[in-house]
Amino acid sequence: MTITLRIILIICSLISFLLCITRIKQAKLKVENSVTWMIGSILLIFMSIFSGAVEWISNKLGFMAPVNFVFLVIIGFLLIQTFIDNIRISTLNEKIKDLNHYIALKEYKSKKD
């Protein structure tokens, strides 16, 4: 890995880490939801510091260049993150639907009485 890439990775990870923390303090992000982001940034920082290990693993796995391995890890991380978000949205959807039904039934009852 080139030194520039390592520096970019470290800076980006630090920024995302700091963003997470400030958002939690402002109560705009829940702690449970931010854990995956923080794990992701820590992973990136580790990969840029211990680039020798990354090179060794990517060589063993047969990647053309270590940077490809880094990208693969990031893509995998993003896929997991979107999947988790998808599940959350579906759960919220169900909850809103139940509320919607509840209000309709309640209104109906109060109108009848």
């Binding site: 639907k97 919607n100 039904h101 209000i103 309709a104 039934l105 109906y108």
Partner: peptide, 12 residues
């Protein structure tokens, strides 16, 4: 009649 406050589709 039962009136839903949000449009949620036929399934709902």
């Amino acid at each position: 009649v039962l009136s839903l406050p949000i449009n949620y589709g036929l399934t709902s």
